[in-house]
């Protein structure tokens, strides 16, 4: 759509801008301010420059949390994206079955995150939980409080349970937008099931998948409440992710300077990954459009 050039459109943006300034810029500036100072008490503070940033980057505990965070985010993306596409392909297209399946599949998305943690805590306990109890009956000594492998597997399963629906619903709406004529043409050409997926459905899903992957990456990188309730970050610190490390630093230990520096680094990593991913996808699409005859 060709837009009209009109700078008075700023007036329409202004209320939004005022509110976001209050809820985002002012707090962010506070964080920047703290990150370069050593605050001893409300009246004594020293300028320390980039010292906190250097400290944070060299802190082995935080490096480990960052590595765990990346491992977690990449694992859940690798499972949720293909699974979500699969579920979307299976969902009925119309009728009451479609409505019912939609509502059921959407359910996990609307549960408060700490309740998701509680649900899985109850579900996986060895004594009262269906899954924990069943696994023990089958002879596997399942225990998320002592085995870090069990804890990891459970957290990943929980996240798959919680968020695959988002990818599935995004893909489902992408599939709904494909005209029936495309499928008829494919049938006339005797295209295989795979060919239909690869050349008709997948291209239509690119847009929604970009949205889905970005949202999932961002949210998995900020995950806090679910592992906090389920494992408390344990056993040891094997499931302590970045948000939890930060929350401990900022509220329990009250290390204002270092946690501010940590915050900024954390934020920048998310921005950087999203930007690189987005730019890469957009360039890829541009290249393809340049070559393809159906540009």
């Amino acid at each position: 759509m060709n837009k009209v050039r009109n700078n008075s459109a700023w007036w329409l943006v202004l209320p939004m801008l005022a509110l976001v300034t209050f809820s985002a810029i002012v707090p962010l500036m506070t964080v920047v301010n703290y990150s370069v100072q050593d605050v001893l008490d409300p009246h004594t503070r020293y300028f320390v420059g980039v010292e906190w940033f250097v400290d944070t980057l060299n802190n082995p505990g935080l490096q480990a949390a960052l590595a765990r965070q990346f491992a977690f985010s990449l694992t859940i993306l690798a499972i949720e994206v293909p699974l979500g596409i699969g579920v979307a392909l299976l969902m009925p297209k119309r009728g009451w079955q479609a409505s019912l399946v939609l509502i059921l599949v959407t359910l996990p998305l609307l549960i408060p995150w700490n309740v998701v943690g509680s649900i899985w805590q109850i579900f996986t306990r060895g004594d009262i939980g269906l899954m924990g109890w069943s696994l023990r009956q089958l002879g596997y000594p399942y225990n998320i409080t002592s085995s870090s492998i069990d804890a990891w597997a459970t957290i990943i399963l929980m996240d798959v349970w919680h968020w695959t629906s988002l990818i599935a619903l995004l893909c489902y709406s992408g599939l709904q937008a494909i005209p029936e004529a495309y499928y008829q043409a494919a049938r006339i050409d005797r295209a295989s099931r795979w060919a239909v997926f690869r050349y008709i459905q997948l291209p239509k899903l690119t847009n929604v998948l970009v949205i889905g992957v970005l949202l999932r990456f961002m949210h998995s990188f900020m995950i806090y409440a679910e592992p906090f309730v389920l494992t408390g970050g344990g056993p040891g610190s094997s499931t302590t992710f970045l948000s939890q490390s930060l929350a401990i630093m900022a509220t329990a230990q009250f290390d204002v300077g270092p946690s501010a520096a940590f915050s900024l680094i954390y934020f920048l990593i998310i921005l950087l990954v999203c930007w690189v991913f987005y730019t890469a996808i957009m360039n890829l699409q541009k290249d393809r459009r340049g070559e393809g005859p159906d540009a």
Partner: peptide, 13 residues
Amino acid sequence: TNMMAPPAVFLLP
């Protein structure tokens, strides 16, 4: 980019 800001970052401010 504001959507990408972890809530934990803004806790203290």
